[in-house]
């Protein structure tokens, strides 16, 4: 902790600015904002937008680490800016950039299209071979069966894991940590019967096998989903599937 005597009055924020109609590439603009020990980076951005430049563009919503909108690179590390305290970046300056690995739309806003497409590609919903009619009641699940996937269901789609993943930075086709963890969440759900529909994509070279278990995704995950662990579990399942595909009664390879 910084003592009152050394507490600065202000802190410098270097913000990446990009306007697609004027700029060839992003440029940095420096703003001086008041320093408060209880301010987060998002507070500083709101102060800049309010006091200095109303055209500064970024996403945010809940301000409490639930919505997953305000992910940005702060000093090169992907974080939720609503949970990144200025006091942890003293004395500054603090460099704020859009999430790495995604096309920038404007200033700190990135294009979500690729991520959203990958999320839906893993079919993140409960698939039943036959839907039971409502009159027969709900699909029951024990607390233990819930524990099998609960951790993987905490994802808030903030995309920090994609920005942290060294593989995603050069493999555009890689399905990526959050979507693969979500696939694992449904595959491990006792109510779901859709594993076979998800395997062709997640077991492909663009799925889990692009992952080299660097583990950065799990380091930056604000919800402790551990996507790297989810992918390792899926690799184990896929390997068992690969070997049993050679057995007479094994699942055939696609």
């Amino acid at each position: 902790m910084t003592t009152a005597a050394t507490m600065p009055e202000t802190i410098m924020i270097d913000v990446a600015r990009y306007h697609p109609e004027h700029d060839e590439e992003p440029q940095y603009e420096r703003f001086e904002v008041p320093y408060r020990s209880d301010w987060v980076v998002l507070d500083a951005l709101n102060h800049i937008k309010d006091q200095d430049d109303g055209s500064l563009t970024y996403r945010w919503s809940c301000r409490m680490g639930v919505c997953g909108s305000c992910g940005m690179m702060v000093n090169g590390v992907p974080v939720l800016t609503c949970a990144a305290f200025l006091r942890d970046y003293l004395p500054g300056p603090v460099r704020v950039e859009p999430l790495a690995g995604f096309p920038v739309e404007r200033d700190l806003v990135v294009d979500l299209k690729d991520f959203i497409g990958k999320l839906s590609a893993v079919k993140p919903w409960i698939i039943r071979e036959e839907e039971t009619p409502l009159s027969e009641g709900e699909y029951k699940q024990s607390p233990g069966q819930l524990a099998d996937f609960k951790q993987f269901s905490m994802c808030i789609n903030c995309m920090l894991c994609y920005s942290a993943c060294p593989v995603y930075q050069h493999e555009e086709e890689f399905v990526g940590p959050a979507a693969l963890a979500l696939a694992q969440r449904y595959n491990a759900d006792s109510r779901d019967e859709g594993n076979a529909e998800r395997y062709p994509l997640i077991w492909s070279d663009d799925g889990i096998w692009d992952c080299t278990f660097v583990g950065e995704c799990s380091e930056v995950c604000p919800k402790h989903v551990d996507p790297a662990g989810a992918i390792q579990s899926a690799k184990l399942e896929s390997t068992v599937g690969w070997y049993t595909s050679f057995l007479p009664l094994g699942r055939k390879r696609d």
Binding site: D205, G207, K235, S238, T239, Y243
Partner: peptide, 14 residues
């Protein structure tokens, strides 16, 4: 989607 042959190499790696 083509099935991957990585499971073989990964099992040897592991």
């Amino acid at each position: 989607m083509r099935a991957s042959n990585e499971p073989f190499f990964w099992s040897m790696f592991s």
